[in-house]
Amino acid sequence: MRKTTDKSHRKPGHIVVRRAPGKATQAILQYGPLRLRAALGRSGIISSKREGDGATPRATMRLISGYRRGDRMGFLPTRLSMQRIRKDMLWCDAPNHPAYNRPVSAPFAASHETLMRVDRLYDVCIVLDWNVTCRRRGCGSAIFFHVARPGYPPTEGCVALSPADMRRLLPYLDDRTVLTVL
Rank of each mutant, 00 (worst) to 15 (best):
C134M: 04
C125Q: 00
I143L: 06
G140S: 07
G138E: 03
V16I: 12
P12M: 03
L128A: 10
Y122V: 00
L115D: 06
T133P: 12
A160W: 05
D71A: 12
R10P: 01
V104K: 01
G41L: 11
R35P: 12
R42C: 01
C158H: 10
I64T: 09
V159A: 06
H112C: 07
A55E: 06
L29P: 15
P107S: 01
V17Y: 04
S81T: 09
N131E: 04
K11T: 10
S111N: 03
P77N: 03
G157Y: 10
N131H: 05
T114E: 05
M73Q: 12
P154G: 09
M116A: 09
Q26W: 07
T133D: 13
S162E: 05
A20K: 15
K11M: 10
H97V: 07
E51N: 04
S47L: 11
A39M: 05
P98D: 11
M61G: 07
Y31R: 12
Y31V: 08
A94L: 05
P21T: 05
T180C: 07
P12A: 08
G66A: 04
P171V: 00
A94M: 06
A27N: 14
R176S: 08
A94Q: 10
M61N: 11
I28R: 14
G13N: 14
T180W: 11
R69Y: 07
I45K: 11
D175Y: 03
R102L: 05
L170G: 01
D123V: 01
A55G: 15
I15W: 04
S65N: 05
R19M: 08
L40N: 09
A24W: 13
G74C: 12
Y152P: 05
L121I: 09
L169W: 05
M89G: 08
P57L: 14
T114V: 12
R102G: 01
I15N: 05
F108H: 06
R176E: 06
P153V: 07
G22F: 09
A142W: 11
G13H: 12
L170Y: 03
L34Q: 14
D129Q: 13
D93H: 10
R19N: 01
T5I: 13
D71V: 00
Y172S: 09
T60L: 10
V104S: 05
L173F: 00
A24T: 14
K7S: 14
N101T: 04
A142H: 13
N131G: 10
L76P: 14
R86H: 11
Q26E: 15
S141A: 15
C139N: 09
W130V: 06
R117F: 08
I85D: 10
A59H: 15
R86W: 07
C125W: 01
T133Q: 13
A20G: 06
L80K: 02
K3W: 02
S48G: 02
R79W: 02
C92I: 02
A109M: 02
L80G: 03
Y172Q: 10
V181W: 11
L36M: 15
N96W: 01
S43T: 06
Q26S: 11
H112Q: 03
W130H: 15
R35L: 13
P77W: 00
P33T: 13
